[in-house]
């Protein structure tokens, strides 16, 4: 079984973004970029399935600029076998990304697709669900456990009240939550080896996809700032302030 994994290049999760002075967007000049953390978890899960001989090949796919090759190489250093870069400029909307993935899946015929649950830049949480709808396959979102059992995937999902387990008929789309696994670090020899793994570059046109605009970004502002409050010296003072000043307890 082949596994296709989505890898998105995003701002490093440790960086605090700033909004540009003209409010056109956030400022990403000279900002450290990295693989979306949820995609790292997706790569790790796929590689583990390959190590367990459940999967035969792990293909990582990114839709983005040429710089996304860096994250694809990184994923190959972590154990993915080959990469596909679908070149596209700027922030590309989830439905368009999903259409590109649908076309790749049509070609590759994977038994499983693993994606992150959410991009930490756009915070959309959409792509996997959209892809599942486009290719008419079942979805297991926000997975904290994944077991492949014959032609089924048993997915334990993190839901509002706790956990839910569902059974999906393969091929299926799974999106990762934080507790699915703990991704490994790439070792130097693997980083070297990854440079020789195949990386194919395609355009949206090669895949027969026309990107459509569904949403226009008008403005990006900094959120309302909270002013740091006061330090209190004791529990008694804290209780007094909460009662008399903030009036949130009585």
């Amino acid at each position: 079984m082949k596994i296709v994994v989505g890898v998105k290049r995003v701002i490093d999760y440790n960086v605090k973004v700033r909004v540009k002075a003209d409010q056109s967007n956030v400022d990403l000049t000279n900002v450290k970029m990295a693989m979306n953390p949820f995609c790292e978890i997706a790569v790790e899960e796929a590689v583990r399935l390959k190590e367990a001989s459940v999967a035969s090949e792990v293909i990582v796919v990114s839709v983005g600029t040429a710089q996304s090759q860096e994250q694809l190489r990184n994923a190959m250093a972590l154990g993915a076998d080959r990469g596909i870069l679908v070149e596209a400029d700027g922030e590309i909307e989830p439905l368009n990304v999903a259409k590109a993935f649908a076309a790749v899946i049509e070609k590759e015929q994977p038994g499983l697709v693993i994606l992150g649950k959410q991009s930490i830049d756009s915070d959309n949480n959409q792509m996997g669900q959209m892809l599942a709808a486009l290719i008419k396959r079942p979805q297991g979102t926000f997975a904290s456990k994944l077991v492949i059992d014959g032609d089924q995937a048993l997915v334990t999902r993190e839901i509002d009240g706790g956990l839910r387990t569902i059974a999906l008929t393969l091929p299926a789309i799974v999106t990762t939550d934080l507790r699915l696994n703990e991704p490994r670090y790439a070792k130097l020899p693997d980083i070297m080896k990854a440079k020789r793994k195949p990386l194919e570059t395609l355009s949206l046109a090669d895949l027969g996809v026309t990107a459509k605009a569904h949403c226009r970004l008008d403005k990006v502002e900094a959120p309302a700032m909270r002013s740091a409050g006061v330090k209190v010296a004791s529990v008694d003072e804290l209780i007094r302030k909460l009662k008399d000043e903030a009036k949130v307890i009585s």
């Binding site: 909307e93 989830p94 439905l95 999903a98 915070d123 959309n124 949480n125 959409q126 792509m127 996997g128 669900q129 959209m130 892809l131 599942a132 709808a133 486009l134 979805q139 979102t141 926000f142 999902r157 993190e158 839901i159 509002d160 569904h214 949403c215």
Partner: peptide, 21 residues
């Protein structure tokens, strides 16, 4: 919520429209 996050993007894709989260 965890349910709507699961089904709403599916609705959007089936209607060939985007979603605002």
């Amino acid at each position: 919520n965890s349910e709507s996050k699961d089904f709403m993007p599916r609705v959007a894709a089936l209607l060939d429209v985007g979603q605002v989260s």
